[in-house]
């Protein structure tokens, strides 16, 4: 069980992690997501003891580290999977995986589980990206850490590999029964891989919840925009009912006054009209199975609409846009 409370990290005089707190249950996977330089890797390094912390506490099992009482990394019993894999180039696969193991049972087990048996005497330089990633994971898990830290483990791999490895790593972590903190900048990965999701922005934790809540009920406009395409439609709320230019919609929480409603491209539908309608297509982007349209509404705002690939429209066409979801929608105070 990991407990991080009121963690702060400074680089020189700049505070890069500001008052971050969270706890992790016994075999829970927490994903931390955020834009470049939001501090997500720094949190991992702080937990591993690779950077000093300025304030707060980190507690894992039997040890507890604070700004005044640092614990060296080798005494923390954490495992880390590095972005560039960090395999020792002068050692073979089995020597890497068994780096500090007295007997090789665990190393053998993980090599087998991750399908690396044939490569045990290979050098890291001869491995492909996906193989390196598996070796790095095997090395970490074979040392039986109390916590696994993954620093953008898939960012150096091909898109085709990412999907299968994402599942494989998740299964391996669950099989090991070890809690894990998984850092990524890829929002799709963030939504699919973790039991819980933390969204970081400028060193602060903006939201910490299960992935569905983060996506459909984001705590801030930043979270809303970061996790997917977002349009904000102004409206006037009276309790759960909100009146907008596109008709009445239901708010997720009761509010009053001027609000902006969060609309995902899939929440809207559009149809071409000869005349009338409520907007004009500004641009169209083909995505394979779908089209993504940017529509300028006559009311003066822009929204994004995703439709099936059969529905092909030219830029400049007049369209009628409607809200087609029955689910309650997230709202934000105007100007908030």
């Amino acid at each position: 069980m990991l407990e991080v409370s009121k963690l702060c990290v400074d680089y020189g005089t700049t505070r890069v992690i500001d008052d971050v707190s969270f706890t992790l249950a016994r075999d829970e996977i927490l994903t931390l997501v955020g834009p470049t330089a939001c501090g997500k890797t720094t949190i991992l390094h702080a937990i591993a003891g690779l950077v000093p912390i300025a304030a707060g506490e980190i507690r894992l099992g039997r040890w507890q580290a604070s700004a005044s009482a640092a614990i060296p990394p080798e005494q923390r019993n954490t495992g880390m999977v590095f972005q560039d894999f960090a395999l020792f180039p002068h050692l073979t696969v089995i020597e890497n995986v068994g780096f500090r193991l007295k007997n090789s049972a665990q190393a053998d087990r993980w090599l087998q589980l991750l399908g690396l048996d044939d490569l045990r005497h290979a050098r890291p330089a001869t491995l492909s990206g996906g193989q390196k990633q598996r070796v790095a994971l095997a090395r970490t898990l074979a040392h039986e850490p109390a916590l696994v830290l993954l620093d953008e483990p898939l960012s150096n791999l091909d898109a085709a590999l990412k999907d299968s490895l994402r599942r494989e790593i998740r299964e391996a972590l669950k099989a090991a029964g070890t809690p894990a903190v998984w850092v990524t900048h890829d929002q799709e990965e963030a939504l699919s891989v973790g039991d819980r999701l933390g969204v970081l922005h400028r060193g602060r934790l903006e939201q910490l919840a299960d992935p569905e809540s983060c996506f459909s009920r984001p705590a801030s406009r930043f979270v809303a925009s970061f996790l997917g395409e977002a349009s904000f439609l102004p409206g006037r709320a009276d309790g759960a009912a909100v009146a907008t230019d596109l008709g009445a919609v239901t708010a997720a929480a009761a509010v009053n006054g001027e609000v902006d409603i969060l609309l995902r491209p899939g929440d809207l539908s559009l149809a071409q009209t000869a005349d009338g309608g409520n907007g004009v297509i500004v641009s169209a982007q083909y995505e394979g199975e779908t089209w993504l349209y940017r529509v300028g509404l006559d009311a003066g705002i822009a929204v994004q609409v995703r439709t099936s690939h059969e529905n092909q429209l030219e830029a400049g066409s007049r369209v009628i846009v409607e809200v087609n979801t029955g689910l309650p929608l997230a709202t934000f105070e105007r100007g908030g």
């Binding site: 591993a48 690779l50 080798e74 880390m80 590095f82 960090a86 780096f99 090395r139 040392h143």
Partner: peptide
């Protein structure tokens, strides 16, 4: 010598002396 190699060795539980000697 990539710093992440040294970090990796230390996270795996090797002290500074062992890191110098083995990595």
């Amino acid at each position: 010598l990539d710093t992440s190699l040294i970090d990796a060795a230390r996270v795996l539980g090797a002290g500074p002396g062992e890191v110098l000697r083995r990595v």
